[in-house]
Design a protein around this nucleic acid. Sequence first.
DNA 1: GTAGGGTTAG
Length: 578
Amino acid sequence: MNPNGQNLRFLLEKSLTLKQLKQVHAPIISNGLHHLQILLLRQVLHSDFTFSAATARYVHLILHNLKNPDAFSWSCAIRYFSLHSQYETAFSLYLKIKRLGLCPSSFAVSSALRACARILNELGGISIHAQVYKFGFCGCVYVQTALVDLYSKLGDMKTARKVFDGMPEKNVVSWNSVLSGYMKSGDMEEAQVVFDEIPNKDVVSWNSMVSGYARMGNMDKAYFLFQQIPQRSLASWNAMISGYVECERVESARGIFDAMPLRNNVSWIMMISGYSKCGNVESARQLFDQMRERDVLLFNAMIACYARNSQPKEAIELFNQMLKLEVNIQPNEMTLASVISASSQLGDMKFGLWAEFYMSEHGIELDDHLATALVDLYTKCGDIDRAYKLFHGLKKRDVVAYSAMILGCGINGKAVEATKLFEEMVNADICPNVVTYTGLLTAYNHAGLVEEGYRCFNSMNEHGLEPSGDHYGIMVDLLGRAGQLDKAVELIRSMPMQPQAGVWGALLLACSLHNNVELGETAARNCFKLEPDKSGYYALLANIYASAARWDDERRLRKVMEKKGFAKIPGCSWMDSM
DNA sequence: GTAGGGTTAG
């Protein structure tokens, strides 16, 4: 075949597959028919090809091969990347078009603005805004609307409003942009005023109101508006589900879900995450099983549900299913973060090493979330050095990363390092949360540092934090192990909430270590009441009786245990033989 | 212009 310009052009005017386009590309280059590349590019950009890294590379290749770069081709490319959520790329192409001295089209400008809005690139957005006047797009409703949306997303409602008020022509999208800005900033009153003023509200205007009230937790108002929507869209229904899930009214969410005329993956995933939040794993799985078109996000939702509800084996099983050839869904950063958390619960160090290898093989970036999950896994497996290496490589150390590392030091007996990390974190203006304190208290507990533990516990309110039952539990354990049983009891009595079994359990353990029968009985009575099916508490009390040589009580307790069907505890055998 | 999945808890 010796293609000439004529038949290549003929080919390019048809609708081609990506493969065909690539076959055409080589002869275009080798025959020096550079002007045809523009046609080629347009074919790619206007086609419905699903976005892939390969297509992106291809678009870049054509762009940079253009003999005479033209504003139109580059503008098309900017729009293409922005439409496919490749905001960084879209913005950097915009910078390049400027460097080439070309004048971007109005849709290139609005696409670049959209990109800046999505990635909250304030500086980039503002500098494009300055150029808007130079290029003469003051009257362009698309560009102006993109500006309104940019400032709305940046939370600068003053500027958003100024641009909006200055628009010679507005469409419903302009109105909706300013409306969603007020919603996001929580100004419901102004949002309501804008909503009432919109000359021709569309379904997006209604949905913004519904999801705004839903986000605030005002579900009555959200439902009231939802009922009045003339033509509900999928997003209207999903906004209601999302609102109910957010305020943990999962049954109400289910009611909406069941009543929907049509559902998409978003609806299913939100329901699954709703069940996940309230610990209803079975219902989540039932929905997952009903869903036929499973994508990576659906798998992620279900895997995360298992991981956060302490079912790590199921999480990993589902992950393995996902990788099977007949399913063949590529996991991404979020899948791996959940699965690493699951393997941390199992203490499976090998999985972490495999995951790091898998990520490098498949080009999955080790982001901060993933690195934090790995820090947790490696510290739980005792490899503190490997954890530190990851921790130091983080782009940004947040409260979760610090908490994971502090706890990691804590369970590895490094109380001094935990303290150091905590100070470092506070100095960096990162606010500790209740989990951070769990880690720190664990560190002191592990090292038996009563004074430090007390000080730490008491300093929680300096950061506006109320100690939870868990924190009391750790403190009781710390005081109890140190033999300060009176102080431990005093602490329990001071608790503003009902002490859970774990708190009494910590006291019971302390009593068995320090042979205190009377307190031990009190602690045990509470444990039995709160967790009647746990044999461990009975065994501890039995040991207390035995070491105090109170054999009658001991034997009585063993009988109760047998009645309850608890397995015989080894250690009573020598008693039997006496 | 509206919508979904991730990391820390003796």
